[in-house]
């Protein structure tokens, strides 16, 4: 049998699921809907916003397939990226756990649309996801960040993550930021009181 078709370890992880919605002080983390796509399509065409994510594309068909795959990640894994909305329902970004078959480990991923940056939304949502994952027993969580993506590195550091080595993903070298799950445990237990 071709070794490329052997079942990888990532397909046999024990079940781990996340809640379908999470609420934070200002944000709602919810399942993806078709009406979120127009703002995702605008983002996908923005060269500056996508410069650390493989670059802009005008191929809306490919963008829709990638959008559908983000939704389908939930069906296959029991967790995934949430659509992050303001109270008004406006989509502000995507934050959550990302672990496709060819990813080295579950990633805490976060992405904020350009017109909603600078408000601390990504930090608020990413912290809530990290704490929920920790509370459900996840012991290890990383973020793979482009070394020039200063905003993303600052966010990871605000959450207490530390740089530990690099990972090559699709031909690009990313810094692996390891999240402080013990610190998250402390934070989430203290917020219970």
């Amino acid at each position: 049998m071709n070794t490329i078709l052997a079942t990888p370890a990532s397909l046999t992880l024990p079940p781990f699921t996340m809640p379908s919605t999470i609420a934070t002080r200002r944000l709602r983390l919810v399942p993806w809907r078709s009406d979120h796509f127009p703002r995702v399509a605008v983002f996908n065409r923005d060269p500056r916003a996508t410069r650390f994510l493989g670059g802009a594309s005008t191929d809306d068909g490919a963008a829709w397939r990638a959008f559908a795959a983000i939704a389908g990640h939930w069906t296959l894994r029991g967790y995934g990226l949430y659509a992050v909305e303001e109270e008004s329902g406006l989509l502000v970004g995507g934050v959550g756990l990302y672990h496709p078959q060819d990813w080295p480990e579950p990633e805490l991923g976060y992405l904020l649309l350009p017109d909603r940056q600078g408000r601390g939304y990504a930090t608020e949502a990413a912290r809530a996801v990290r704490d929920a994952a920790m509370a459900r027993g996840l012991v290890r969580l990383a973020s793979f960040i482009h070394p020039e993506n200063r905003a993303s590195i600052r966010l990871a550091e605000r959450l207490g993550a530390r740089a530990e080595g690099t990972r090559d993903l699709y031909g690009t070298t990313f810094v692996r930021y390891c999240h402080d799950m013990a610190g998250a445990a402390h934070a989430s237990s203290s917020t219970l009181h």
């Binding site: 078709s34 939704a71 389908g72 069906t75």
Partner: peptide, 14 residues
């Protein structure tokens, strides 16, 4: 194939 699979099941979800 996994991404294609995710896109197919995501189509159902959406």
């Amino acid at each position: 194939a996994w991404r294609l699979l995710a896109a197919i099941v995501g189509h159902w979800a959406l």
